[in-house]
């Protein structure tokens, strides 16, 4: 009877207790790792923020246009603060992954492994987005200034279109890097891009028939003296 009691009730209960203690220690380990991550993350954020401020990182971001994007998006009060927050997030996320890995189950291990394999792609996609945003801003501004100086009434529209296309290209490149529905994205982009170019070509063709005719005429039958657009002497 005693053996039966030991085998049927106390044994499983003891095993359950041992498993609970083991799980509890794992959970404690996770909690400690996360807590450490939170503390380290906060410290790293503060250090990064202060260091970047001292190095005038915000001014650099303002010059390149990143500052304005940060300001307008409401993500953070400044670019250096956002950089601090990113560092903090990375540290907390790493602590979380370490905690999951410490659980030692095949599922969590597989999850962590897959994340680390995917991480370089995430980083590359992020960089593509940042560089693309900067290029789109620069080119958009170049088009805007050139169009305004040429007195084109649709200057802002042209600049917006330039920014939009560069950002679409950037998004396609970033998504391609992440491997998300690669074929679908490329086909969609090709259709969209081709459609817009065709529409623009038709619009330009219809709207500027006279202009093109005059241009060709002026080229084939040159005038004795070309018209001077700006006859003033400024210097």
């Amino acid at each position: 009877m005693k053996t039966f009691w030991e085998q049927a009730v106390l044994g499983p209960l003891r095993e359950l207790g041992q498993q609970a203690v083991a799980s509890l220690s794992s959970l404690m380990g996770i909690m400690i790792l996360i807590l450490l991550g939170l503390i380290l993350g906060w410290l790293a954020k503060e250090i990064t923020y202060r260091l970047l401020r001292a190095l005038r990182f915000d001014r650099l971001c303002d010059r390149t246009g990143v500052g304005l994007v940060v300001e307008r998006s409401g993500l953070a009060r400044s670019s250096s603060y956002l950089a601090g927050q990113i560092v903090q997030g990375v540290i907390i996320f790493t602590a979380l992954l370490a905690g999951l890995n410490a659980l030692g189950t095949p599922l969590t291990r597989n999850l962590v492994e897959r994340f680390f394999l995917y991480f370089p792609h995430l980083l590359a996609a992020f960089l593509v987005l940042v560089v693309g945003a900067l290029i789109s801003r620069f080119l958009g501004r170049s088009v805007l200034i050139a169009a305004v100086n040429a007195n084109l009434p649709s200057a802002r529209w042209l600049a917006g279109l330039t920014r939009f296309f560069v950002m679409v290209l950037t998004a396609v490149a970033a998504l391609d890097e992440l491997g998300i529905s690669r074929t679908t994205i490329i086909v969609t982009f090709a259709i969209l891009f081709g459609g817009v170019v065709a529409a623009a070509a038709i619009a330009v063709g219809l709207g500027t028939r006279e202009l093109v005719r005059e241009f060709l005429e002026s080229q084939l039958r040159p005038k004795a003296r070309p018209e001077v657009e700006d006859p003033m002497r400024h210097l």
Binding site: L144, V148, N151
Partner: peptide, 12 residues
Amino acid sequence: SYRQGVRDLQPV
């Protein structure tokens, strides 16, 4: 030219 510049280039 001036008026268009002040309007369109305001963010710059």
